[in-house]
């Protein structure tokens, strides 16, 4: 099940989007997310859809793969939709049964919320799908570098993030193995109330922590052996350099944000209640 979550996964392909500087992708993703939240009209969402479709096409990541990321939030999505649908009381009542009623405003809000959430997930998965975890941490490190002045250990934090990304799949696999081994010794990890289940996880968690510490220790040794002495004096194999395509991408996304905002706000275009 855990393997099916695509958020945070990288999909190797050779596309315009893949080749972009990670900083561009991080900043543009943020811009896109902001544009979604200041959006409140059908036309604005249509423009966002066209924009997203264009980027997905340019990324060469199969649509099926991107959609998979949504599985992880399906519960959250349903929850938001239901809450908005029944709890918003705004405008004419469309449906009424027992103590529930759906208003025009509620329907509109829940549809827009759902679209927003879905686009938000697709947008951020697109970033992680097209950027290697390392490039991503490099990008974050570079964007956060100004914080160095405030004694925030930016390089160290970035290094920790990239190591975590490397070891998460390994530790997941290890968890699976330990769980199987304890089940083979008769452990019951599935039944009982929350307290019992938490207690039943001890035989899984203790070995997992022991192993994580052992790995951390080994890794620290291996890094030292390869002359790692912290961020100072290091060079980069893949330094971040803005190229023409990156400026183009910035310009393109900025244009989208402006157009979507202006058109969405000022061009009256409505279908039914939306």
């Amino acid at each position: 099940m855990i393997r099916e979550i695509t958020i945070g996964q990288y999909y190797p392909a050779d596309s315009f989007i893949h080749r972009l500087d990670p900083r561009v992708k991080i900043v543009c993703t943020l811009l896109f997310l902001i544009s979604l939240f200041i959006q409140n009209s059908l036309l604005g969402y249509l423009i966002a859809t066209v924009f997203l479709a264009f980027v997905i096409h340019a990324s060469k990541v199969p649509f099926k793969f991107i959609i998979k990321g949504l599985k992880a939030i399906i519960l959250l999505l349903m929850f938001t939709v239901v809450m908005n649908l029944f709890l918003t009381k705004d405008g004419a009542v469309l449906v009424r049964f027992w103590i529930f009623q759906i208003t025009e405003g509620g329907l509109k809000l829940s549809v827009f919320m759902a679209v927003r959430l879905i686009y938000l997930i697709i947008g951020s998965s697109l970033m992680t799908l097209t950027t290697t975890p390392n490039a991503l941490t490099d990008g974050i490190e570079s964007l956060l570098r100004p914080l160095n002045k405030f004694r925030v250990p930016v390089h160290e934090v970035a290094m920790i993030m990239s190591i975590a990304l490397r070891f998460i799949p390994i530790l997941l696999e290890e968890t699976d193995k330990i769980m199987k081994a304890q089940i083979a010794r008769g452990a019951d990890l599935e039944s009982g109330n929350i307290l019992q289940r938490t207690k039943a996880m001890v035989p899984v968690l203790v070995p997992l922590f022991v192993s994580a510490f052992r790995r951390a220790n080994d890794l620290a040794l291996a890094m030292e052996a390869r002359c790692y002495f912290g961020g100072e004096g290091r060079t980069k194999m893949k330094p971040l350099l803005y190229r023409r395509q990156d400026y183009l991408a910035y310009a393109f996304v900025a244009a989208y944000v402006v157009v979507a905002f202006v058109v969405g706000r000022f061009v009256p275009f409505h279908i039914w209640i939306f």
Binding site: K177, A181, V202, P207, V210
Partner: peptide
Amino acid sequence: GLVFQYPEHQLF
């Protein structure tokens, strides 16, 4: 009874 590879990794 199934003894996994590196069974010592399950001691707790």
